[in-house]
Design a protein around this nucleic acid. Sequence first.
DNA 1: GTTACATCTTTTGTCTTATATAAGACCTGT
DNA 2: ACAGGTCTTATATAAGACAAAAGATGTAAC
Lengths: 242, 242
Amino acid sequence: MSKLAAQPLYRQVLREVMAAIEAGEWDEDESLPSETDLAKRFGVSQGTVRKALDALVADAVLYRRQGVGTFVAGTSDFLLRGLFTTPAGADGVKPSVELLSCVKIHAGEQLAEILGLRRAAALWQVRRLLRVGGQVIGLEEMLLPEANFPSLEMRRIRELKGNLRELCWRDFGVRLKDGQVRYRAVLAGQTEARLLMTDVNEPLLQLVRLAVDFEGRPQVWSVAWLRTEELAFEPPVLSPQV
Amino acid sequence: MSKLAAQPLYRQVLREVMAAIEAGEWDEDESLPSETDLAKRFGVSQGTVRKALDALVADAVLYRRQGVGTFVAGTSDFLLRGLFTTPAGADGVKPSVELLSCVKIHAGEQLAEILGLRRAAALWQVRRLLRVGGQVIGLEEMLLPEANFPSLEMRRIRELKGNLRELCWRDFGVRLKDGQVRYRAVLAGQTEARLLMTDVNEPLLQLVRLAVDFEGRPQVWSVAWLRTEELAFEPPVLSPQV
DNA sequence: GTTACATCTTTTGTCTTATATAAGACCTGT
DNA sequence: ACAGGTCTTATATAAGACAAAAGATGTAAC
């Protein structure tokens, strides 16, 4: 292992492992070589490899099973994650994503700032719809720097069933993870109501997030509007009685 | 150190350290003994103490500064945490909490299930209001098992400026951390509107959370309604143009 | 006297070695 | 066929040695 120094060993190992994953050396849900083997390969001890893998497990890039092995984790879509109470959506209904549009636009001042780009840099604007059991549940707009994702085709997005996170990973080697996430409640305007096929002034959960790559660089900025009334949530709230 | 076995050493150390913190052996922001000293005290190696402290740092019970020491972290309130962009609230405005009520009620079926209590167990129902710069921003209802928090007095809550998390900690030795958190958007009903001093049908962010102690046992169930329009959020959303 | 700088001490952080524990595969006797 | 060892290979834990960072302290130059 090349000792660039100025950086702890386990950090270098982490990078090397990440690079190997990005190079497609091991497939999704495929087991990596054992910690001992990786240790030999990088010329460090098992404990050091372990510390590197620990960090990747914490970032949900890998998962482990004692006595069995360490595996590459899949890349499920952000939008669909953590919205439902049951793991795969209640009642056996499967959420699906419909791609609405994918066009090139130019970054405004604030957005360029947030994504660390020069002003008016080229961006992909991707819009998609989240459906659950036939009903439209959410609308999302995502903005990606064109520089990092040069050829973003609608065909390809459709191929991956709208899973942009997987696309970023497979086609561009960028592994996204959640950065900041902000929530707020808003009323549906005309545009949102039309796209969500619901009424103006329905309350919507607005989700603003900045996804970063595993080095912490901002990569995708997105806003989603969700009809939370319809979601299979926890038992509803107590009746106020004050 | 008593070797109960069936549990790794570092886990036992973790418990002992946690117990010492609960016993008030070290104050908030006070430094613990060095890892080497703790190692001597518990009769284990520094590395083992380190692994125990690692876990507590991950749970934000402790924080560390290389070359300086390890310190007991404070207990800021849940409600106020992570809502603002700037660390202490924008524009120098300080959020404050007003206690509305604190009464004893009986658990419904679902709630008893969630909190792991028998049906109709006694609960404290605490209601409080979040103010920012004079304006009412949020309303929260919290439910705590009376068994775990026997004497909950309004006077005491007021003393701690409404910080229930700190109260649970100081008076009952229960260190709370976030468990599940769910978000949804709802419209203000008459009750919420009246208490929040706003209009019916304003969109509100509803936050349902279950706080657990550091052993993972559910302790506090709460619902909050927040006026997110007023919060100092990220730059507002792009104008839809589809 | 004060300041710049080296050095010492104490602390957390990293790394290796050795050993324990978990899981599954493979025997092997009934 | 199947129940139960035991072998192999994985991750998990523990201890000790050493490195790096931060602050305190001493000291020479001015």
